[in-house]
Write a protein that binds this DNA or RNA. Structure first.
Length: 111
DNA sequence: ACGTTGACCCCTT
DNA sequence: TAAGGGGCCAACG
């Protein structure tokens, strides 16, 4: 049932669908879920998703392409390391060529 | 049950 | 160009 986890489940699902070498934003996920202004909720869901290996939270950044949540990982450097491992270069906590690496769930799922 | 915080985003000064 | 405040929804104390 998990009716109360519905919102979280959707966030997890979208994040799981993020292809390697691509990134998305909290607002994009929130907008896809219908809660455009609730980008913070996505971040909150990510906090719980942090314990799920199937949810690559390191591929989720803010609209600025900045690794705002890196501080929540096991180590602040882990997020950037994972991104670089996927071929995404990060500098000053910000993804380089972010707009090109941006992966929009609405486009991928083509609603 | 109320108040505060939070991995954000947008607008105004 | 930079800084500040408000809004959003949900969980934690």
């Amino acid at each position: 049932m998990k009716s109360n986890d519905n919102f979280f489940a959707q966030v997890y699902q979208v994040v799981r669908l993020i292809p390697s070498g691509k990134v998305t934003t909290y607002g994009a996920i929130a907008a896809y879920l219908g809660s455009k202004g609730s980008a913070r909720m996505v971040g909150w869901a990510m906090n719980a998703a942090h314990g799920l290996k199937d949810v690559p939270a390191h591929r989720v950044v803010n609209r600025n392409g900045m690794l705002t949540g890196k501080n929540h990982f096991s180590t602040p450097n882990l997020m950037q390391e994972l991104l670089e491992k996927e071929g995404i270069y990060v500098e000053d906590n910000t993804i380089i060529n972010f707009e090109n690496l941006f992966w929009d769930p609405a486009l991928a799922l083509e609603l």
